[in-house]
């Protein structure tokens, strides 16, 4: 065990549309990385907590992502489930931009 955060390089900021998301697979798991309207970046677990649907296919508006299947929605900054049928929060992971590269801490 270590408290040192391990950052994983994920993509370039320009790979993500503003107010958009991309899927990121790493270590046998899937994540979603978001670029907010203010160009800040965020990372959550990749699958909706209601059914295993990739959230990166969903619409991002402001700081919300909507599941492409059942329209459940989350605040991707906090992972909070904000619209049914999603009722369980999403796990979130630290994300940051370094020299135009997005990196995430998945530990």
């Amino acid at each position: 065990m270590s408290n040192v955060i391990t950052w994983v390089p994920a993509c370039k900021l320009d790979d993500i549309e503003q107010e958009g998301a991309i899927r990121f697979d790493h270590g046998g798991r899937t994540y979603a990385i978001y670029r907010g309207p203010d160009d800040s970046v965020y990372c959550t677990a990749g699958l909706c907590t209601h059914e295993a649907i990739h959230l990166a296919d969903g619409l991002v508006m402001d700081y919300e992502v909507e599941c492409p299947k059942h329209s459940g929605a989350f605040d991707y900054r906090t992972g909070e489930a904000i619209r049914l049928p999603a009722c369980e929060n999403l796990k979130t992971y630290p994300a940051e931009i370094v020299d135009g590269e997005v990196r995430v801490a998945l530990g």
């Binding site: 990739h54 969903g58 299947k69 329209s71």
Partner: peptide, 11 residues
């Protein structure tokens, strides 16, 4: 393919 166009339909 899959849910690839879901966000366009939502818009």
């Amino acid at each position: 393919v899959g849910n690839g166009l879901a966000k366009e339909i939502k818009l």
